[in-house]
Simulated scan of single mutants.
Amino acid sequence: MIYMDTVSEVEQWARARGLDRPSNSSKQLIKLMEEVGELSAAYNKGQQNKVIDSMGDIQVVLIILCMQLGVGYGTSLLDACRQIKYRKGKMINGSFVKADNKRLKKRNEWLEQTNCDLNKEIEAAYERIHQLTIKIEEMF
């Protein structure tokens, strides 16, 4: 729950600064690329503290970009996890290369269709929790 609380804090921070507007999404995408560049530089220089900072910055930028595009951050992460869960492939030169498997693709399509309604329900529940959290904070 701590993770989703942190996501909620980032969303509140972004709303307070007007960063949640869809018109800002192209700028947010540029910001994402800048942060990935900083991560790469820190990694190549062996600067562990900057690597950690960059990873956090990238997540903040992604959370805000998801807000701007109307995509649930948690839902997108859950979808990605479900997609890779059964992915088959092999390591080639230190990178995972997924197998081209028609049966696997059909299974993933079925899972995607089956989980679509569930994802919508999760996102709606998360939004209700988020709105209740805001109301509770306003009371104090």
Rank of each mutant, 00 (worst) to 15 (best):
I2P: 13
Y3S: 08
M4T: 15
S8V: 03
W13V: 00
A14N: 01
R15F: 07
R17H: 08
R17E: 02
L19C: 04
R21F: 02
N24M: 13
Q28P: 05
Q28K: 13
I30D: 06
K31G: 00
E34Y: 00
G37V: 00
E38L: 02
L39I: 00
A41H: 07
A42S: 05
Y43R: 07
N44E: 07
K45Q: 12
Q48R: 11
K50V: 02
I52Y: 06
S54C: 04
D57G: 02
D57W: 02
V61K: 01
L62C: 15
I63Y: 01
L65E: 00
C66H: 03
C66P: 03
Q68M: 06
L69P: 14
G70L: 05
G70S: 08
G72W: 00
Y73P: 05
G74Y: 06
T75D: 05
T75L: 04
T75A: 10
T75S: 12
L77N: 10
L78V: 04
D79N: 13
R82P: 00
Q83G: 11
K85Y: 14
G89F: 05
N93H: 12
G94W: 02
K98F: 08
K98Y: 11
K98L: 11
A99D: 13
A99V: 01
D100H: 12
K105G: 04
K106F: 10
R107K: 14
R107C: 09
E109M: 09
E109A: 14
W110V: 06
D117R: 15
N119F: 15
N119P: 07
E123S: 06
E123K: 04
A124F: 02
L132F: 15
K135S: 15
E137C: 12
M139D: 12
M139I: 08
F140D: 03
